[in-house]
């Protein structure tokens, strides 16, 4: 049987959407944060990417937001969608009510309207946590590569899938209170490199990086991160596991 697109019933009238955007332009001294409402007609298969671009093209060319891949892969377009962190590009309007409220991700530096500087934060976190393979081995590029168990490679990829969108930080209780908290994104990266046999670092080395309240012991296990992660990374189990490992080092 040929399958077809999930389709809206043709008899249903087109919805009018009211999209409320929390606007503020820090470059403009006169700007104050305020909600601005835009009305548009919903179209079939409409995503927030399509809706916001339509608003910018036809109603307000100054509206700021960030999209890059528009396919849920690059992590640029995280924002609060009706209060919940998510990727705007792959959010279909048909899954939302007729009034949709959009706000920038909290916690990150605001660039303007829905655009925030996640890149700067992520680079800083990477530098702090040294999120790269530390290896003293010289690689001979002409020799056969070192073998790795197929399941291990897959397990590393599972954690490598993070797209640094910032949703986990926006959904995190600790991050709201502790400015330096590395968040699930940071802890997941440590878990990723810890799992990787190509990285020489020991548990002691990792403890140096995350063995405090700005690291793994700052997590209050509220699991906001786990619920909002658009890549459904196993954050809950990874953080719990890491905490146990690090606690052992701390006690020693």
């Amino acid at each position: 049987m040929i399958s077809i697109l999930r389709r809206k019933n043709d008899t249903q009238p087109t919805r009018r959407l009211c999209i409320q955007v929390l606007r503020h332009n820090p470059a403009d001294a006169a700007s104050v944060p305020h909600l601005q409402a835009f009305e548009i007609a919903e179209a079939e298969g409409m995503t927030l990417f399509i809706a916001l671009n339509e608003i910018r093209a036809t109603q307000d060319p100054s509206l700021q937001f960030d999209f890059v891949c528009r396919a849920g892969i690059c992590g640029s377009c995280a924002m609060l969608i009706d209060g919940r962190p998510g990727l705007a590009c792959r959010t279909l309007t048909r899954d939302l009510g007729t009034t949709i409220t959009l706000a920038p991700l909290p916690f990150f530096e605001l660039i303007g309207d829905l655009s925030v500087n996640t890149g700067k934060w992520m680079r800083g976190t990477s530098e702090r946590l040294q999120t790269w393979i530390h290896s003293s081995a010289q690689t001979d590029l002409d020799a056969l590569e070192a073998p790795m168990e197929p399941e291990l490679a897959e397990a590393i990829y599972e954690l490598d899938r993070c797209i640094e969108c910032g949703c986990c930080i926006a959904g995190c209780g600790t991050a709201q209170m502790r400015e330096k908290f590395v968040g699930a994104v940071g802890l997941n990266k440590i878990a990723r490199f810890r799992l990787d046999p190509r990285d020489d670092r020991s548990n002691d080395d990792f403890y140096e990086l995350i063995g405090d309240d700005d690291g793994v012991f700052g997590c209050m296990s509220l699991l906001g991160c786990h619920d909002v992660c658009p890549k459904q990374l196993p954050l809950q189990t990874q953080i719990a596991y890491l905490r146990r490992k690090m606690a052992v080092i701390g006690l020693a």
Binding site: I133, S135, T139, E145, A153, E154, D196, R198
Partner: peptide, 12 residues
């Protein structure tokens, strides 16, 4: 191979 050394989890 260089990418493997830098951490790319190539399928095996």
């Amino acid at each position: 191979r260089e990418l493997a050394a830098w951490g790319v989890p190539w399928n095996r």
